[in-house]
Computed example of a mutant assay.
Amino acid sequence: MAIIKLSPTERRRLSAFVTCCVVAFAAWLLTVLQGSYNYKVKCILTYNNIPQRRAFRTLQSDTVVATLQGSGWQMLSARMHNEDEHIAIDLHTLDTKNFIALEAQLPQINSKRSAEQKITDFDPDTLYFDFTNRSTKRVPVKLLKNITFQPQFDVAGNVRLNPAYVFVSGPAATINKITEWSTDSLKVTDVEANVQAKVDIAKVRDGNVSIYPKIIQVFVPVEEFTEKTLEIPVQLSNNVHYYDVKIFPQKVKVTFMTPLSKFAEINDDYFDAVADFGLWAEHKYSSLPVKITRLPAYTKIVKIEPQNVDFIVKK
């Protein structure tokens, strides 16, 4: 392929031509972007002044398409970021109507926006609602938590919530399906002492449901744990034919972690160690695994020695 060689003068002319083209394009783009345009963006509706005496559900999506009037720069920014806007809609007229005309609220909506970026239209421009009887229900609070502890520390008692219940209010059909209400996640790290905190109730996703109160006080008892070992008698279960069975050994050593405050009081009466004789009767096991079926609250089994026991069936 032939290579075109340009003289120094021709190269200067070509450079000047390219520079002029770039400058002209930049000037044109700047002029275009400074103009005024109508463009569309998706908007997520949020609701204010929800009727207290009427429960409702929306008959359409909570997302509408809004036509905005703004500069080319604003239109370009909206296209690049592609983020949905949030628009607050006033529902106070639902006390007497079953629809909201968005156009009627344009002055109120635009008063909270930049004067250079006004909304001119919505699609759809009317929201319709279905009304039902409003119901109130008391439900337990479920704490979501993500707590990590320093070595040897852990939860040492019942987590206390104040209040332990919240009131949810809304359409009866919706409220009847609610059996509990979660909190936001309580996140604490490297814990070595009791945790006391305030946690927000999880946000309501349905605009016609309300909840009270919105903040819960949480107390998590935390203690240092230590290791303890006890000998626990092994009990035989599922001996349905009442065979005369001798177990070897008759006790197993159970090593567990327990809060320091409980260390002295915990003895073998707090544990049940069980071997299932049905495993021999049905499956001919030669030894029986030992399971701990009862243990004190907030203790954690470390190991069982031995994990299996031998036995003799006397005939």
Rank of each mutant, 00 (worst) to 15 (best):
residue 231 E to W: 01
residue 148 T to V: 02
residue 166 V to C: 04
residue 256 F to S: 06
residue 135 S to C: 15
residue 295 L to E: 10
residue 50 I to S: 09
residue 229 T to E: 13
residue 236 L to I: 13
residue 227 E to Y: 03
residue 147 I to M: 07
residue 84 D to I: 00
residue 76 L to S: 10
residue 114 S to H: 10
residue 173 A to F: 12
residue 66 A to I: 12
residue 215 I to C: 01
residue 187 K to E: 14
residue 90 D to R: 08
residue 258 T to E: 00
residue 24 A to R: 01
residue 298 Y to P: 02
residue 271 F to T: 06
residue 305 E to D: 14
residue 105 Q to Y: 05
residue 133 N to K: 08
residue 198 K to L: 09
residue 236 L to R: 03
residue 162 N to C: 02
residue 68 L to P: 02
residue 111 S to P: 01
residue 291 K to C: 00
residue 253 K to E: 15
residue 218 V to G: 07
residue 97 K to S: 12
residue 67 T to H: 03
residue 269 D to H: 11
residue 129 F to H: 07
residue 1 M to Q: 05
residue 155 V to W: 09
residue 311 F to C: 10
residue 180 E to D: 15
residue 218 V to N: 10
residue 288 L to R: 05
residue 267 N to E: 09
residue 268 D to F: 09
residue 235 Q to G: 10
residue 247 I to A: 03
residue 78 A to G: 07
residue 281 A to Q: 13
residue 190 D to I: 01
residue 312 I to L: 14
residue 186 L to F: 11
residue 141 V to E: 07
residue 309 V to H: 07
residue 273 A to F: 05
residue 267 N to C: 07
residue 207 G to E: 12
residue 89 I to F: 08
residue 28 W to P: 00
residue 237 S to N: 08
residue 108 Q to A: 14
residue 163 P to V: 02
residue 160 R to V: 14
residue 169 S to K: 11
residue 229 T to A: 14
residue 19 T to P: 00
residue 69 Q to H: 14
residue 147 I to F: 08
residue 249 P to V: 02
residue 276 D to Q: 07
residue 225 F to T: 01
residue 123 D to M: 05
residue 151 P to E: 08
residue 212 Y to G: 00
residue 38 N to A: 03
residue 127 L to G: 01
residue 168 V to R: 04
residue 69 Q to W: 00
residue 174 T to D: 14
residue 54 R to S: 10
residue 286 S to I: 05
residue 225 F to Y: 11
residue 149 F to K: 03
residue 143 L to R: 09
residue 224 E to H: 08
residue 185 S to E: 15
residue 41 V to T: 13
residue 273 A to S: 10
residue 223 E to F: 03
residue 14 L to G: 00
residue 314 K to E: 11
residue 33 L to T: 08
residue 67 T to D: 00
residue 252 V to F: 05
residue 116 E to I: 08
residue 173 A to T: 14
residue 293 T to K: 04
residue 113 R to L: 11
residue 264 A to H: 09
residue 191 V to H: 02
residue 77 S to D: 14
residue 26 A to G: 11
residue 305 E to C: 00
residue 39 Y to A: 04
residue 251 K to R: 15
residue 21 C to H: 08
residue 146 N to Y: 10
residue 157 G to D: 06
residue 152 Q to D: 14
residue 276 D to W: 04
residue 99 F to L: 04
residue 233 P to E: 03
residue 201 I to S: 02
residue 150 Q to M: 13
residue 6 L to Y: 15
residue 8 P to V: 07
residue 27 A to H: 01
residue 85 E to R: 12
residue 20 C to W: 08
residue 16 A to M: 13
residue 222 V to L: 05
residue 28 W to F: 10
residue 74 Q to T: 07
residue 185 S to K: 15
residue 247 I to K: 04
residue 2 A to D: 12
residue 7 S to K: 14
residue 194 N to Q: 09
residue 85 E to Q: 13
